[in-house]
Amino acid sequence: MSNNKMNLIGKELYRKSVHILLTIILLLPYLIHLPWPLTLNNYYATGLFLAAFINSLVARRGKVLGELKKFRENIEGIIEKTNKELKQPLFLVEQAVSKLQEIISTQISMLERDYEKREGYVGLLYGMIGATLSILVSPETTVYGLLALATVDTVSALHDLFFNNRQKSLRGSFLALIVYFFILVLVGSPLLSSFLLSIIACITEYISPEDNLTVPFVTTLAALFVGMPLKPPL
């Protein structure tokens, strides 16, 4: 396997790990009681705000990184002119700003998909919009939408990556369907309803221009219509 292929696989595995971690964070209200003063609504509202803020930050990353660079250079100029006692703390500030530059640049590079490099980082924002809309329309079935968000895209994308498919494949979607179906059964869902919901979730992922937005929302609504057990947040 070529180094380029290995790098591509490593980057995709990292992206999907972050994707799953963020979905688990979205699932927390269904796993634990949120501490005061958090409620379901303000928990998701805060997440949506942070996603929008990160999106705006990444969309303007050139300016942000440029300002950080300028700030670091100003600190370096001050260090050269100041006395010995102040040089060490200023040097630590300069190192911290430099490290922040590096972290922002590296994380953006690791998380961005090809089209996001042209249009701005939108995956996180669309995922939060899809999840928040799901909570608004049916909090009792949102858990199914979130499980689909974590599973369907991840499984199909990794399958296609390992089998050298440049685009979505039916085989990858079929594998995602099987995995999602077994997850639903494991959490106690009826077989027929689980199978129907798995089909809907995978078709949505396959045809959608932005699956982070559509998969959680469509699956949440579909769970109502196929008779999935209601699972309200704790």
Rank of each mutant, 00 (worst) to 15 (best):
T142W: 01
P229V: 11
K81W: 04
L50I: 12
F181P: 00
Y180F: 15
I79P: 01
S156G: 09
F182A: 06
I200E: 06
R15T: 02
L22K: 00
F71P: 03
L31D: 04
L234D: 04
K70C: 13
V155T: 09
G120I: 00
L13T: 09
S109G: 02
I25C: 07
V122Y: 02
E94L: 10
L22R: 00
T39C: 10
A131C: 11
L31K: 09
P229N: 05
R113L: 05
L13A: 11
Q167D: 13
E112P: 02
S189C: 15
G123S: 10
F174D: 03
S56A: 11
I20D: 03
E112K: 09
K70I: 15
F71N: 05
P190S: 11
Y180V: 06
G127D: 05
S173T: 14
Y121E: 01
R61S: 15
T219A: 05
V97F: 11
K5Y: 09
L192Y: 11
D160Q: 04
S105V: 06
I54H: 04
S189Q: 12
Y115H: 10
L8G: 04
R60F: 02
T141A: 08
L136P: 00
L13G: 05
P35V: 08
K231Q: 11
N4H: 04
E12F: 03
Y30V: 02
L50H: 02
N212I: 01
S156F: 00
E112Y: 10
V215S: 08
L38Y: 14
T151Q: 06
F174S: 10
L68M: 15
P233V: 12
L213I: 05
Q101R: 11
M228E: 07
L177Q: 13
E205S: 04
Y206L: 14
N7C: 07
N55T: 12
A201I: 08
D114L: 06
G127F: 00
T154Y: 00
L92P: 07
I103C: 00
I78L: 13
S105G: 07
L68I: 13
Q88P: 02
L92G: 07
G130Q: 07
F49H: 11
D160V: 01
T141N: 12
S156M: 11
L111E: 05
V215F: 08
G10C: 12
